[in-house]
Simulated assay, not measured.
Amino acid sequence: MKKLFIPLLFAFLFPVSFSCSSMRFGSYNLTEADAAAAIREMLSLGAKESNLSGAFSKEAVMATLFPESMRKTLNTLNQLGLTGEIDRFTTTLGTAAEKTATASVPIFISGINNMKFTDAMRIIKNGGTSATDYLRSSVGDSLRRAITPAMKTALQEYKLNEQWEKIIKPAQVLVGNKLNLDLANLMAGMVSEKMFQQLEAKEKEVRTTSSARTTTLLQKVFSKKWQ
């Protein structure tokens, strides 16, 4: 009986067995190459479908420019009669940020396509937003730097640097050199973070919703729970 049981056990387990370089589920054999290609495809889809309209509200912009420790400074600026100028500035800056986000899509796709993997299989198995997290940790800084020139162009187009200088002078008197004055770098960081949030949302959708897996590769890789 034991002699018969062992071969049957192996026959049952074989379809879902895997090695370090591949994993098998039924008739499909997931390789490291397929795993990496599926991750790139999923993240590129998220970048192409990104819609950041309304993502750069006054509150979000002010939180980027003025950290929590500087909120008292904001109240003082309002008391100095700069409320209207701050509102106009943040609204225009939000528009410039949206334009930069649109211009940054090819930059993100290029970064995704050039991303190097150490273990794509592990990313597939880990679930959640592990693919986006990997992109953020591996090329996040370089993507932010690549976005900065586009942000500078938008700032110049909307003449925001001049407005920023006017608003920030009273703040500098109050806080000295504690404030980061590099508007282009600050806003490039914000645009980059909003893009990553869009990628996270798309990754969750692809991993959990069958209709979001719009290609054969995404269906093969993300329709199964790899262990």
Rank of each mutant, 00 (worst) to 15 (best):
S223V: 11
A131E: 01
I124E: 01
K58Q: 08
T31G: 09
T216D: 15
G94V: 02
A131H: 02
V173C: 01
K125H: 03
I109S: 04
S138P: 01
G81E: 10
Y134R: 00
I109H: 01
K58D: 07
A184E: 03
I124M: 03
A101E: 02
A146H: 05
I109A: 05
G84Q: 13
T132V: 12
Q227I: 14
M115G: 05
N78M: 14
K116Y: 08
E59S: 15
F5C: 09
F25G: 05
A171T: 06
A37E: 09
E85R: 12
L80G: 10
M70F: 11
L155I: 08
F117T: 04
W164K: 00
K3E: 15
S130F: 07
L45F: 10
L13M: 14
G111T: 04
R71Q: 13
V105F: 03
M23S: 13
I39E: 00
F12W: 11
A37P: 09
G84I: 13
K178G: 05
A201P: 00
C20H: 15
P67L: 09
W226H: 09
G127H: 01
S210W: 04
E41M: 04
T153Y: 03
V61E: 00
T31N: 12
A60S: 14
K194R: 15
G54P: 04
A188M: 04
S44G: 09
F108V: 00
R24W: 01
L199P: 00
T153A: 12
G128I: 02
K159I: 11
K152E: 15
E59H: 12
T91A: 13
K194T: 09
E157T: 15
S53Y: 05
R144G: 08
L135V: 02
T209M: 13
I109R: 08
L183T: 00
E193A: 11
L93F: 03
Q79R: 13
S53N: 10
P170T: 06
N78D: 10
L199C: 03
T208W: 07
R88E: 07
Y134T: 04
N161F: 09
W164C: 11
T153W: 04
L183N: 02
S22P: 12
K224I: 07
Q172P: 11
V61G: 03
E203D: 00
T102N: 09
A184Q: 02
R207W: 00
L8G: 06
